[in-house]
């Protein structure tokens, strides 16, 4: 289980009704079902992901998040989760707005583009960062909208979203020890819990 998913688990209330955007093969929902007795659905477009969900018996709807969530009713979920998918969206701000409409709160995780390795790649190497978390080259990456912790918080402020919780994860040294000091520099993954008011 990825570190960010462990943190998500801590933030999810028992028996919550969850929508997982970009749920992959349903592993997170399955885990939350077992540990938190949640109910809910995943949205996914990858064939392998959907088959994985069906194999696991996880509810999944094939639906492209870039088309919005117009088939979902307002405030119909306790929590809408989007784990490591925001940076692949055409319009991250619109997706966030939809998450706020559909859920009472949202948990968003994304890779921190302000991480020192990313900065090093670009500043010294002069090349777009490639790392374990972001293993793609610039021309074939599904990740089209990168942001840093700071960028994300500026957007939340602009859209009048309240940040309820924020966690930074870094699994590798030295970020593992240093991220509490300078999260935007040493944090690999951001995990935010936000509310639309």
């Amino acid at each position: 289980m990825r570190l960010d998913q462990k943190i998500i688990e801590n933030w999810v209330k028992p028996n919550a009704h969850i929508l997982d955007l970009g749920c992959g093969d349903g592993r997170l929902l399955e885990h939350l079902k077992n540990t938190k007795h949640i109910t809910g659905y995943g949205l996914e477009i990858s064939e392998a992901g959907i088959l994985g969900c069906v194999n696991r018996g996880i509810n999944v709807i094939e639906q492209n998040l870039d088309d919005g969530l117009k088939n979902f009713a307002d405030q119909s979920f306790d929590t809408v989760i989007m784990s490591q998918v925001l940076q692949t969206m055409h319009y991250p701000d619109k997706v966030l707005a939809e998450m706020m409409r559909v859920g009472r709160e949202a948990i968003v995780t994304f890779p921190n583009f302000g991480h020192w390795r990313a900065r090093w790649h670009l500043a010294i190497g002069g090349k777009m960062p490639v790392s374990d978390l972001l293993p793609f080259e610039w021309f074939n990456t599904p990740n089209i909208h990168f942001c840093t912790f700071k960028d994300f918080e500026v957007l939340c402020k602009q859209l009048n979203y309240t940040i309820i919780d924020r966690q930074v994860a870094a699994e590798k040294a030295p970020g593992k020890w240093l991220h509490p000091l300078r999260p935007n520099l040493f944090g690999e993954t951001a995990i935010y819990r936000i509310r639309g008011y």
Binding site: T39, C53, V54, G57, N59, V60, I61, E62, Q63, N71
Partner: peptide, 18 residues
């Protein structure tokens, strides 16, 4: 997709694939 959406709002277990 409409069937799946209705099922989801009725809180039924469902998978939908296109």
């Amino acid at each position: 997709h409409e069937i799946a959406t209705a099922l989801l709002h009725a809180n039924k277990n469902v998978f939908y694939a296109r």
